[in-house]
Amino acid sequence: MRIKSGIFILVIMFSFVSCVSYFNLKKEIADAEGSEIAVISGINNEPNLSFAMMLTASLQKHSKLKVMSQKKIAESIEYYPFRIEGPWKFAYVDIEPDFERVNLEKIKEIQKRLGVKYLYVVWTPVETSYTLQNTGNVYELHTISQLYEFPDGEPIGGSKFVIAKHPGMFSSMGKSKRDVMMYYADNVAKEISEQMKVIKGGNS
């Protein structure tokens, strides 16, 4: 009986892990190799900037894109990082998306300063924690992101997922918050690279 319920919990956990979509590209891209991309932190707090930094490093590792460093972004844009109104109606407990609410003007201004072809803006507006009886503490960082293509500033992809440090999940067992975040950043970078056909070691 114990084995059966153990297997059941494993199946549920596995299905949760495998359901996460880290990135969805909305249009076919064939010639992105060598194009420049910058990852922008949409909120000026520590977790958001950390995720942007990790994603920058992961994209440099996994993709054939020219990835602008966070240092260069900070040198090019005064006061970076600062808040950019993001794509949500509410973001207190979780994110209720509303893509009309993005401050596209601010994003276009940033792109003008950086001169990159792709701008990947990531927001982490909700950070929650709670305790599960007999399991432990769960920490969640709700993220939403958009990939913009220039010169038009068209949103061509994005995602919405939760970075979760959950004592019962394989991906975060025994890991620090930073390690969990790096795991997610790596997965996002791999999916962006695969879907844009610029993954290192791929057939692009």
Binding site: K89, F90, A91, Y92, V93, D94, E96
Partner: peptide, 8 residues
């Protein structure tokens, strides 16, 4: 109502 709406 959703929690977001309640909090708002």
């Amino acid at each position: 109502y959703s929690f977001n709406q309640v909090i708002d």
